[in-house]
Design a protein around this nucleic acid. Structure first.
Lengths: 342, 342
DNA sequence: TTGAAAGCGTTACCAT
DNA sequence: ATGGTAACGCTTTCAA
């Protein structure tokens, strides 16, 4: 059933039917009711492509992930962010278009996206440090919001992020307070902006206490079990191994944990571990300690905010760049053990 | 730059330019070259919506997840499947449309999708037992492939799945061989088809050895850390606690592990744990044991297969239902401990 | 308050 | 081998 057929059934023009359906004020209320009823009855729903062609809007938001960081999708956090956005999109009549963009021809890809009119706006996932995509998108005049930030980009842009630096600074301070002096950081790829910020937080905490940093204790790679396992095993074999480990993701922490087991050590006794993104931290117990960072539900919330922000921006193109820094509270559980002897 | 402008620049008709660009055989090779060159130079790329309107194809594949199982997205496996599909889509010129469909008006939603012409085909994620969506989609004549299967659906449909039953049967048998008699299953929601199959595998293994099943040892819920933690803690307080645990997901296993810690027990000594989806199992060591199930890269591969299958189906609507049962090998590492005493 | 017709950017049919 | 034109399904002037 299309508009033409529906209007014929009703003995009205396509124009009137369209207006009735789209809430234009000039149609008689009785007519509108009749049209709405018929639309429901005949199961009419407008063809999005045709609407798009006619209006120039696609009612679709693109989520772009660089193929170079596709492994990031593996992060549970990512799924939650998407789920949150999806909620808002469906409420406001938007669709979500997913694409992986190869780094080589980013500019071209975005240009095409715009040209093809496939999306009204974009969400940029997994920004790198000094991410070139932001400049391209600004230049193109395409509305977009960045999930995360990109240090080094001076132009204004909209973003939503959690306070990665502060959370890692706090986590480090907490371990220092417990008496740890050999604290390792198992970070994500430091070309990623969030990883850089986490590292900064870690470094600031150490410097403020006058603790020397040790490059051997700072590892950076994809956040997978395999990597967490490998790096931890490696560090535990040092002459002066870490007594505490900051794991940058729930997934890599699984590997950290296994490496500790394999070394015959006990977590929380021989090695303390603080894990980012661990939902279990909600289960407060005597040994919990508050750290500010992302929780699963807060990430979902971030997705919602991001979606709302972008839709606003699309409908108010004159708006300035907006941003939100979310300070969600995470509680780290008992795997954070006591200080080492001496 | 649109087709009209491009054709004017070239002094050709829109028809010819279109044909040249789309590889029709009847254009002179010299013309085609000239057109291609100009298209490149002027950065022309066709408007997808207009193409869609004209051809009736949208070159878009929809991935649908029921909102009721949105937490599934949190599973790393999910991200990998999507990443794999995405690869194939972009190769073959397809876009990926993501949507969460509320269970209430599924039928309506699909009907609309079809009517709106927003997708050429669908991938159904997270099928339930006897999933009604399959019937609806068949009836609608919309090409689709199910990621997973749905027991109880008698009509033929295309699907791709891993051998969940066999993997859990094997894992259980392995634990039985080690001497375990109190084996717990921490399963996903048993309304989900994959969870049902895993349960079946577990039960078959027990029955074949004449081991009585204990409802107390069979838990089923969302696969989160919190749930894994809660159920494990609960079971460890039984008079006759489990000596081994089968965890249905990487994420819930994190909770399992913490509960074991909190109980003052040691994994691999007091309690053996086999975890599904653990990439670390790739790291073979002396105590590894082969279990057949999904690994991360095999899931990505499944996504690729699924995408290819669907695209074929779209282009060959007469084809019968196709399906693939993937038998990827997973190796479980040292967290699988020795048999309990006695 | 309603309707006719033009227009959005393609493809596809029918000529030439 | 190329071009004219209708058609896709909607929105939006402009008229009535």
């Amino acid at each position: 059933m299309n508009l033409k057929e529906l209007s014929e059934k009703l003995g009205l023009s396509q124009t009137t039917v369209s207006r009735a359906l789209n809430g234009y004020p000039e149609v008689k209320e009785a007519t509108r009711l009749r049209v709405m009823e018929a639309a429901r009855q005949f199961n009419y729903s407008p063809n999005k492509r045709a609407m798009g062609l006619a209006t120039g809007k696609s009612m679709t938001i693109g989520h772009v992930i660089p193929t170079s960081t596709q492994h990031e999708m593996v992060n549970p956090v990512f799924g939650d962010f998407v789920a949150g956005s999806l909620e808002v999109y469906s409420q406001r009549g938007y669709d979500m278009l997913f694409s992986a963009v190869p780094d080589e021809d980013e500019a071209q890809t975005y240009r095409n996206m715009q040209r093809k009119g496939s999306v009204d706006g974009l969400v940029l996932q997994g920004p790198q440090v000094n991410d070139a995509r932001i400049g391209i998108l600004r230049e193109l005049g395409m509305p977009f919001v960045v999930h995360g930030r990109s240090s080094g980009v001076s132009d204004p842009y909209s973003w939503i992020d959690v306070n990665n630096k502060r959370s890692f600074q706090r986590a480090t301070e907490f371990l220092l307070d417990l008496g740890h002096r050999r604290i390792a950081l198992i970070n994500g790829l430091e070309s990623m902006d969030f990883a850089q910020r986490r590292r900064d937080g870690y470094l600031v905490a150490l410097h403020e206490r006058g603790i020397a940093t040790d490059p051997e204790l700072m590892r950076s790679s994809e956040m997978t079990e395999v990597y967490g396992h490998h790096e931890t095993r490696d560090m535990l074999q040092l002459d002066d191994p870490p007594t505490a480990i900051l794991a940058s993701s729930l997934i890599s922490a699984i590997g950290v944990r296994r490496a500790i087991d394999e070394a015959g050590l006990v977590m929380g006794r021989d090695v303390s571990v603080i894990t980012h993104d661990d939902e279990l931290s909600y289960l407060k117990n005597g040994q919990d300690v508050p750290i500010f960072t992302a929780t699963r539900s807060s990430v979902r919330d971030a997705g919602r905010h991001c979606a709302a922000m972008l839709i606003d921006q699309i409908n108010n193109p004159t708006d300035d760049a907006k941003f939100e820094l979310l300070e969600a509270e995470l509680v780290v559980g008992r795997s954070t053990g006591p200080a080492p002897q001496g």
